[in-house]
Design a binder for these strands. Structure first.
Length: 110
DNA sequence: TGAGTGACTGTAA
DNA sequence: CTTACAGCCACTC
């Protein structure tokens, strides 16, 4: 059984698109929801390649830090988040615990 | 072919 | 609190 990375990346985008407006999640949470918690680094890589219809700006690291900010150029990532009602300060999401969205949570409701 | 790097995370000291 | 290390794997040189 060969691991299908393309399918994995497709799933990553699918989950990312499910993130509600005004919420954020972490790379690890996405990886866990796909039962690939160890391939968390591939999630980050996938975000780098993410198409425009994927809200990659809603994906931050487990500390709520906007680690991918530099890839958006300038403060676009922060601007996008703030325009969605989130509070961002010093490249970090305020009330992170509060706005955090776990993909597994949505899967349970399904 | 092999070493280095990275939008990461969990565990340990 | 900080620092270090291991695990994972695509990509670049």
């Amino acid at each position: 059984m060969t691991f299908n990375k393309e399918q994995f990346i497709i799933d990553i985008y699918a989950v990312t698109r499910l993130i509600p407006v005004g919420r954020v999640t972490s790379y690890g949470a996405i990886a866990r929801s796909l039962e690939q918690s160890r391939r968390v680094r591939m999630v980050g890589w996938a975000m780098n390649q993410s198409p425009e219809d994927v809200p990659a700006h809603r994906v931050v690291n487990r500390n709520g830090l906007l680690t991918g900010r530099q890839f958006f150029g300038g403060t676009r990532m922060q601007d996008l988040l703030q325009s969605e009602g989130l509070e961002v300060e010093k490249n970090k999401v305020k009330n992170f615990k509060k706005v955090f969205w776990d993909p597994l949570e949505d899967m349970e409701v399904e």
